[in-house]
Design a protein around this nucleic acid. Sequence first.
DNA 1: AGATCGGCCTGGACGC
DNA 2: TGCGTCCAGGCCGATC
Length: 268
Amino acid sequence: MPELPEVESVRRQLVPRLVGRRILAAAAQPQRRFSRVGAAAGRRIGAVRRRGKYLLADLDGGAELVMHLGMTGVFRFRGDPDGWTPDAYVRATFTLDDAVLDFRDVRRFGTLAVVAAGDYRGLATLAALGPEPLSDDFDPDRFAAALAASRTPVKPWLLSQRPVAGVGNIYADEALWRARINPHARRIGPARAHALWAAIREVLAAAIEREGTTFRDYRMVNGASGRNADFLVAYGQAGRPCPRCATPLRKVVLAGRGTTYCPRCQRH
DNA sequence: AGATCGGCCTGGACGC
DNA sequence: TGCGTCCAGGCCGATC
């Protein structure tokens, strides 16, 4: 499930192969999640950026290609040494001047859209996206103040993408464990908010170093897996002893999402 | 206006 | 073996 570290790892592999290239043709399956993809045809690609879990490619003529990997989205180039060949799950194809790029997405949770540059009106989450966690825009005091003002349990609050961009289910569980905060907590003081602020940055930075977490679907553009799965201490570890206090980790459903935490050392 | 919840989508794991 | 059920979860839109 691609979150910020996975999307960033994909971005880093896309940059050398997309920046400066011209899109000769672009086509996607007809569905609402793919909007005006054909409008990318004929345009040259500028910077390939990332905001949260979104990939953003600047196109000439004042356009922008917005890409979201959803749950199972991957980008792959035809003819690469990894032997990728398109299959029934390819949802969109971009013909470049020197390569052919496929967007494969088994579960169709991904999004592709060509918009006027910066016009995210059809993309509510992107339009209201919080600060980049690894940038100076992510301010610990503002984060603590926003957390103090919220009455929502902290985990779904994080997943909303408004307080901070790019944190999904895996890294929310990891960061809350690291900061010793119960995912159900609704009232969190400044000291613990600062601990969570730091934990988010640490967890995401370490996962980027390892090129993301692969369980099954997530792959980089070259087909390789991320190496972070073996380092998870909370997500997917229900029943195992907490590495801090040895209490068995508990799994619950919170706001419709599987949530694993230590019932002893993660406090309300 | 903000919080909450169901729907989307499909393969794989699991139970009988 | 085969079938049915459940689960994974980011985002969107409807509803309260």
